[in-house]
Design a protein around this nucleic acid. Sequence first.
DNA 1: ATCTAAGCGGAGGAATAATCTCCGTTTATG
DNA 2: CATAAACGGAGATTATTCCTCCGCTTAGAT
Lengths: 191, 191
Amino acid sequence: MRADAQKNRQRLIEVTVELVMEIGGEPPRDAVAERAGLGIGTLYRHFPDQQSLLHAAVRHVLEKTISAGEDLVETVPDGVDVLRQYMHMALDSGIGVVNIIRPLLENRYWPDLLDRATALMKSIVGRAVQEGSVRSDLSERDIVFALIRFARPLPVGLPSSEERALAHRHLDFYIDGLCAPRGPPSQVIPN
Amino acid sequence: MRADAQKNRQRLIEVTVELVMEIGGEPPRDAVAERAGLGIGTLYRHFPDQQSLLHAAVRHVLEKTISAGEDLVETVPDGVDVLRQYMHMALDSGIGVVNIIRPLLENRYWPDLLDRATALMKSIVGRAVQEGSVRSDLSERDIVFALIRFARPLPVGLPSSEERALAHRHLDFYIDGLCAPRGPPSQVIPN
DNA sequence: ATCTAAGCGGAGGAATAATCTCCGTTTATG
DNA sequence: CATAAACGGAGATTATTCCTCCGCTTAGAT
C-alpha cells in the first residue's frame, strides 16, 4: 500500500472518531470525507461500506483506551484512583464512539479486544470494590454505561470546550457518589 | 373547539413526549400521528409546523414538572430530599423533552414558565447548599444539564424498562456524589 | 527523467426518508 | 337531521444521504 494511501486511511479513521464524538451518532459519510480534506471517492475506496469505517473507528479507540487502562492498572497504587483516572481518560480518548455500535458485545468483530476489555473492567472494578472504597454493588456495566452517558454531547448547543469540561465535572460527581452511597440503596440490576 | 378535537390534540402532545423520550430526539411527524392512532392530516391541522408541536410538548412537560417541584419544596422538610425527589420525578415526568429545544433559554416562547422554573431551581439548589448538605459550588446549571443527560436514552438497545431503571440508579449515584465530594475539587464552571 | 499502476476527486444519478397538501368521507352537536 | 367541523391518508414534494464512475494526479520504481 502506498504511503499516502496509508496516511489518508488513518486520517479518515481519526476524523470519524472526532465527528462521532461531536454529533453523538453516525456522521454522514461525505461529512467525514470533507472534514478529512479528501474526496468522497477516496473514502469509499478505503471503506466500501458504512460498517467497515465505523468498525475501524471503534477498534482504533478501543485499542488506545484499553492499552492506556492496562497501564493505569499497573502503575497507580490506589484502586479508586485507577477507576477515576481511567474514566476521565476514556472520555478524552473518544470512548464515546462505541455508542454507534448497536449490539455492544457483538463478539464476532473483535473477540480479542472484547476479552481484554472485559478483563480490564473486571480488574478495575474488582480492585476498587475489594478495597472497600466504592459501593459493593458496583458492576462493570455501571462503568461502561456511565462512560457512554457522559461521553455523549448534550443536545444543547454548548461550545465544545464547555461541553467537555461539564462532562468531566459531572463524571467526578458520579464517581464521588460511587465512593459514598447516601441515598436509598439502589435497586441492583443483575448482570 | 369540538370535544373530540380537543382530546386528539392532547393525545398528540402526549405521544410526542413519549416518542422524544424513547428516541432521544425529534420524532418524525408521521410516527407521532401513527402512534396516536390518528391520520397525518389531523396532526398537521392541529400543529401546522414542527415548532408548534414541539413547543406544545415542552410546555406540557414543563408545567407538570414545575408544579410538582413547587409542591415538593413546600412539602418536604429536608433540602437534599427535595433535590433528590425532584430529580427522580422530573426524569419520570418527561423532562428529557427539553433536549429538542435548541436555544434552551429562548425566553420568547415561555417567559412565564422560565421564570417559575428559574425560581424553583434556585430555591431547591439554594436550600440544599444552605443546609450544607451538598457541595457548595453546585449550580442550577448542574442540575438542569444532569437531568438532560440522565433522561436521554442510551443509544444502546436496552429494553426501555431496564433503560429507565439504570437512569435512576445512576442518577442516585450522581446525587450521592453531590453530597459527598471526594475527588479533586472540580473546576467551577461560571454561570 | 520517465513511466505507470496506484490512488484521488467530485459531479451527479439513485435511493431513502421526511414533509406537507388536498379533497372526499366521517361525525359531533345544535 | 343538517351541517360545519374534523378526520384520513394517498401521493406529490422536498431534503438528505449514498455511492458509482471515470478522467486526472502522483508516488515510487527503474
